[in-house]
Design a protein around this nucleic acid. Structure first.
Lengths: 232, 232
DNA sequence: GTCGACAAAAACGTCGACAATATTGCCTGT
DNA sequence: ACAGGCAATATTGTCGACGTTTTTGTCGAC
């Protein structure tokens, strides 16, 4: 998570969280992967206590599951949870866009356009890591400008979760959404056209979800029983 | 928080969280109170590590603020955040009620009615602690029955935050809402009457917020400067 | 030959002590 | 007498080590 909490001391913990998050969305770390504390501690050159803090934060964000005395694994949201996450996030995004349309300033429009420009640059440069980060930050920027601290936090968690789901279920090659849809959302917001802005945002989210393969067959094995028995 | 996470081992941490939460909503612990780790450790007979875990969780829920090298204080949400919390919670509650209206079963109605009956019993018995707990659990029960894990978690946080705000700003004597409004909400849900259910829930939340004194004058001092200078 | 139990190893959870940092009271210089 | 700096204290942050639980490999009995 590049967003939130850049406190100077906890920076190590955030670094760990960020790396794990990035590895997940880049599909380097597959869901279900076991995360041993000592290994992580050695990898990041940190102590186990720090790793433990990071894992606790990641659990709050739903990126890892933390079983008592069993350790941490990358979370494996099922299709049910996937639909739930997208539906909830869509609802929050719609609300944020509506609010932003009503209070947007010219200066904020410049900020949004600048961000989209950065996205475009990363897209053309083929910098996949920057594209991933900027794509997420775009939505967080909307939340920031919309001025709702709570909705901001909520959207942060939902964005992380949908990122995991996208990395988990996306069928085709890692086709992260281009900046065009973001640009159209910004246009609508800049024009203070609420209904168009909502429509664009809805289309954007549905497009994101539609690219996933959320059929039952590749649901992760809940306890490997159904995985090996063909889940009759 | 009586709700969530009854793991056998972390029970100590939850106990600490619960006690602190209860003390806050009962106005025994005022917002802004400094929470020294060693004191809490001795009070609860736990070690400082456990207290630290509890404080970290409470910070996630927005009940305490955690400043680096400064320790923990009971959070002091301003009137802006108060309105934000109530508005967001209202929105979530409306969504949950809508969803529940569409999928409610007879058995679930029985569960809801039984809960309201317990509220009524506690109300007549004058058990204020039980009233507080059951009032919160009523809304969480709705979220549970509505079957949205994410909305459930979101509402949990929002409920905790509004509890803090209520304890902080409520003007009259601790008049926690009687079970009557809850009963009417249940009636509407049982009848699958979405619009009435939403209306009742909205009325309930507005009633809760209306009883607070959210005028600027008793906003907590942001740095005591405005507190002592009369905040010109 | 297979099943059950036991023991060893590994990983997590916990604790106490040490170091870093902020606050506070005091002292000195002007 | 007051201001500024300094030292003492109190509190938090961090670390390494130990106890506990889970897992796994092995042995013995039926």
């Amino acid at each position: 998570m590049p967003w939130l909490a850049p406190t100077p001391k906890n920076q190590v913990v955030n670094e760990i969280c960020d790396r794990i998050w990035l590895a997940v969305v880049q599909r380097t770390l597959r869901p279900g992967t076991r995360l041993k504390e000592e290994d992580l501690a050695e990898i990041f050159g940190a102590t186990r206590a720090r790793v433990r803090q990071a894992l606790a934060l990641l659990e709050q964000d739903g990126l890892v599951t933390l079983s008592p005395n069993r350790g941490a694994c990358i979370a494996e949201p099922g299709i049910e949870e996937a639909h739930d996450a997208f539906a909830t996030r869509l609802h929050v995004e719609q609300r944020l866009v509506t609010r932003l349309c009503r209070k947007i300033t010219a200066e904020q429009v410049v900020t949004l356009r600048a961000h989209v420009a950065r996205e475009r640059a990363a897209h053309q440069a083929g910098d996949s890591e920057a594209m991933i980060r900027l794509s997420g930050e775009f939505h967080m920027l909307i939340a920031t400008l919309a001025e709702g601290e709570l909705l901001h936090r909520i959207l942060r968690t939902l964005t992380i979760r949908t990122s995991l789901i996208t990395a988990m279920y996306q069928a085709r090659s890692a086709q992260t959404c281009g900046p065009d849809e973001h640009a159209r959302i910004v246009d609508a917001i800049a024009a203070r056209d609420e209904v168009t802005a909502i429509a664009e945002m809805t289309h954007h989210m549905q497009h994101l979800e539609a690219e996933l393969d959320l059929s039952d067959q590749n649901q992760p094995a809940a306890g490997l029983r159904s995985a090996l028995l063909g889940r009759g």
